[in-house]
């Protein structure tokens, strides 16, 4: 077909930036990497958590981080890079203090996600996969984040920001930029993307008790059941 001449187009397949060799990985980080490797029946299973830890320390997947993982696990740096470049959560360029995601998979897009992304992008002055010059924000066009009953959905540092509107998104960015306290609609007070990455690596931050048990939509069926006196059968009635 005319206009369909083949052109390889995989923008996400870029390499780790090997020219930026800066790192904050120290002996304490190495000890934590070894700790993670020791938590699994086979050490290599810890590679994904270890890469999350690298990001929390270096703000990206750094060359030093790749070497550190390879050293601890006794595998090659190519094997580590191969994994690091497969998963979308691993950043090959420095992420912002706050990592903002806007869902534009079908349902969120239709319900307004496209406009949210456009407005957030314009407000921050960056395109998806970029970071603001002051390092405060990075932006990502995310795929479905399992919160469709709260569409359109945004995420900040992988915390839910449910039922978003342009006005709410505007205020969210302003508040984060001003350093005000911002809480997820179904999560904890927003800290930073790096602190979030540390939790994902497997080092808890003691914030599990923050936030509600569920959102309103999550509770809708239960509240309708209660209003009607509906419940699962009693075990004795089912015998």
């Amino acid at each position: 077909m005319s206009g369909h001449e083949f052109q390889s187009f995989f923008p996400d397949s870029g390499e780790v930036d090997m020219t930026d060799t800066s790192t904050s990985i120290d002996e304490a980080t190495m000890a934590e990497l070894r700790d993670l490797a020791g938590r699994y029946p086979q050490a290599r299973s810890a590679l994904l958590p270890m890469l999350h830890l690298v990001q929390s320390v270096d703000g990206r997947i750094s060359p030093a981080g790749i070497e550190a993982c390879a050293d601890v696990l006794g595998i090659s740096t190519a094997q580590v890079s191969g994994v690091a470049t497969f998963y979308t959560m691993y950043r090959r360029r420095p992420g912002g203090k706050h990592h903002v995601g806007v869902c534009t998979t079908a349902l969120c897009a239709v319900m307004g996600g496209d406009t949210l992304l456009e407005k957030v992008s314009a407000k921050l002055g960056i395109e998806p996969d970029e970071t603001t010059a002051d390092g405060t924000f990075s932006l990502e066009r995310i795929e479905c984040n399992a919160a469709c009953d709260f569409a359109p959905v945004m995420m900040v540092n992988w915390e839910f920001m449910d039922n978003m509107t342009p006005a709410k998104a505007d205020k969210l960015i302003d508040d984060l930029a001003a350093g005000k306290d911002v809480s997820s609609t179904r999560g904890a007070k927003i800290t930073s993307w790096r602190e979030a990455e540390r939790v994902l690596a497997g080092f808890t931050d003691g914030r599990a008790d923050e936030g509600p048990s569920a959102g309103e939509a999550s509770l809708l069926g239960k509240s309708i059941a209660d209003a009607n006196g509906w419940a699962a059968p009693k075990p004795e009635d089912a015998k």
Binding site: L48, M155, W158, S184, G187, R207, A208
Partner: peptide
């Protein structure tokens, strides 16, 4: 990984 509070 993209659900921090669920993981917490």
């Amino acid at each position: 990984g993209e659900v921090l509070h669920v993981i917490r």
